[in-house]
Design a protein around this nucleic acid. Structure first.
Ligand code: FES
Ligand code: FES
Lengths: 154, 154
DNA sequence: ATAATCCGCACCAGTTCGGTCCCCTATCGG
DNA sequence: CCGATAGGGGACCGAACTGGTGCGGATTAT
């Protein structure tokens, strides 16, 4: 289903929760309560996010988590990468993926372009935008071609 | 990993193989040979593609498969939809997805926008473009913002 | 010292994915 | 009319991954 893991969805939720309180040091339980995600899951997510360098942790009593950078400089692509590894929509875009027919695959290079487009789509949205309560749910009428890499075709 | 199933990758490969011979009626074994995909897998894929209305089948001796429409009118989004169901990058973007915190989720509407962007990215590439042997591997220098839905922010 | 809190890893159940197999139906050639 | 060819619809299985839980250890404020 072209799915992003549900964990990642929760992850962004936690991140936006964190983004609403940039200064405070929130512990895992507090974050779980605010984001309405199960506490153990939040803990697991935060560990991964720390490892990914998106949040910084403070240990000990009154410890907790803060965003490593400003919410405007963190994109959902960052969050996804931290939680699910490098963004690669095709399993065998990277070499060594275990695909037995790499040599004869004619469309691998084209897939990589789509890959790039998706990556850009995810990179275009920052945490600050995700945290904004009301999104523009009405789609813009003007058509535009997101896949500019193919714009030069004829 | 934001992954597309490997089956889908194979599917596009088969479709492009089919697109190279628009008139002929190729059977499953022939397609397997040309695309270098395991024969049973190809058969399974073709069944799904037929059900999705992307290819038409001819039964009986000398039967086989043809594209249902011109290669220029079939997008990879069509292929993905046929093989993996509706494109939804977030598991709980659709209601009833089993997410326990739908009510309090603040970012669901924003995810849907990203969803839309990804869908457009996939819709922008046709089979004909995938079949083209040489893709423009050099990224275009000009920057552009694929996620136009967020363009109106301030 | 004690309590609070994060850290790392191991572990489990459920689901999904890739792949294979079998039998039925439809069509063509003789 | 009959048999060979080829697709159609499933069931089926092993492997891998996912979401989720648990526990012992390290770190810090009081
Ligand atoms: S490289 Fe694996 S299918 Fe194209
Ligand atoms: S709706 Fe499930 S996490 Fe947002």
């Amino acid at each position: 289903m072209l799915k992003i893991a549900k964990l990642t969805d929760y992850g962004t939720l936690v991140m936006t929760t964190l983004a609403l309180e940039p200064a405070a040091c929130l512990n895992a339980q507090e974050l779980a309560a605010r984001s309405h995600v199960a506490a153990p899951t939040v803990a697991k997510l935060l560990k991964l996010l720390v490892k990914g360098g998106l949040v910084v942790s403070t240990r000990g009593t009154h410890g907790g988590y803060r965003l490593a950078r400003g919410a405007e400089t963190i994109t959902v692509a960052d969050v996804v990468s931290a939680l699910e590894g490098p963004i690669a929509i095709t399993a065998c875009a990277q070499h060594g993926g275990g695909c037995t027919i790499e040599g004869s695959c004619t469309s691998r290079s084209n897939w990589r372009l789509i890959d790039e487009a998706v990556r850009q789509a995810l990179s275009a949205v920052t945490l600050a935008q995700m945290a904004a309560p009301r999104a523009k749910t009405t789609r813009m009428p003007g058509k535009s071609v997101p896949l500019h890499v193919f714009a030069a075709r004829e």
